[in-house]
């Protein structure tokens, strides 16, 4: 299926403006250091896999990139603009798919999407919602409350929610967890399609082979530090696994 995502972002061009630039990002909670001196450069239009064991700091890093959590130190620039706590305008260019669906269970899929669309100031939120419900193959269930959906269906609505405002940077935090094989395949296709349309995708994932197959760039975190940042095609899953699980 083709879906028009209104104004596609620029496609990936080597040396193009960075969608994400992190310099010496650190995050400490109480006395525990979660992230330490993270340097990251993701050019616009790239598909990046963020890999690491549990507790490596993937979710915290994604939350910082999503402006949900402020770093304790360092500088984060998204689309060339330094992120501050009140960076409202930058948020309108971000889409986030998280562990939770970020939906209201008592509202229908359509109501959820229209609500979030209007929150972002989308001109024709009902039209956009209908378009995206088709995209995620849920148009027939558009008016059903989300609480009646399976995990896979909720995840698809969640993707539609994240795309309502046509974001330039899509951050996905383990979106495959808990999904069955067909739903995983569908989600993989969706993310690849979005990347094909010029979106920058950052995918935090446990599955190394799957991530290397999907992404162009792989970043491995271990104990809050970046230990590997290479083109995905040049990496061997066994070597990445060794990096992920090294102590």
């Amino acid at each position: 299926m083709t879906v028009s995502l209104s104004t596609p972002a620029a496609t990936a061009i080597p040396g193009a403006a960075a969608a994400v630039r992190a310099e010496k990002l650190t995050k400490a909670i109480d006395d525990k250091t979660i992230l330490k001196d993270i340097n990251l450069d993701i050019s616009a239009g790239r598909y990046v896999a963020l890999l690491g064991a549990n507790g490596a700091g993937k979710t915290t890093l994604l939350k910082i990139l999503a402006t949900l959590v402020a770093p304790s130190g360092g500088v984060l620039k998204l689309f060339g603009q330094t992120v501050r706590r009140d960076s409202i305008h930058i948020r309108s260019r971000l889409g986030l798919i998280g562990h939770g669906a970020m939906l209201y269970r008592d509202l229908s899929a359509r109501e959820n999407l229209v609500f979030f669309g209007r929150l972002y100031g989308v001109a024709d939120a009902p039209g956009r919602a209908a378009e995206l419900l088709k995209f995620v193959d849920l148009a027939p269930r558009a008016n059903d409350p989300v609480k009646t959906f399976s995990r896979g269906m909720m995840q698809r609505v969640s993707i539609a929610r994240a795309l309502m405002h046509n974001p330039d940077l899509l951050l996905a935090d383990e979106p495959f967890s808990g999904l069955d094989a067909p739903s995983c395949r569908m989600l993989e296709e969706m993310l690849s399609r979005l990347h094909g349309q010029g979106k920058t995708v950052v995918l935090a994932n446990h599955e190394i082979s799957q991530s290397l197959r999907l992404a162009e760039q792989a970043v491995v975190l271990r104990k809050g530090r970046v230990v590997l940042d290479e083109p995905a095609s040049s990496l061997d899953p066994a070597a990445v696994l060794a990096e992920v699980s090294a102590r």
Binding site: R91, A101, M102, F116, L119, R161
Partner: peptide, 18 residues
């Protein structure tokens, strides 16, 4: 509690909402 269920609050906080 409505906002905490399914992490809906994160959906609001990542939006361009004061």
């Amino acid at each position: 509690a409505v906002e905490r269920q399914d992490d809906a609050l994160a959906g609001l906080l990542v939006a361009p909402l004061d």
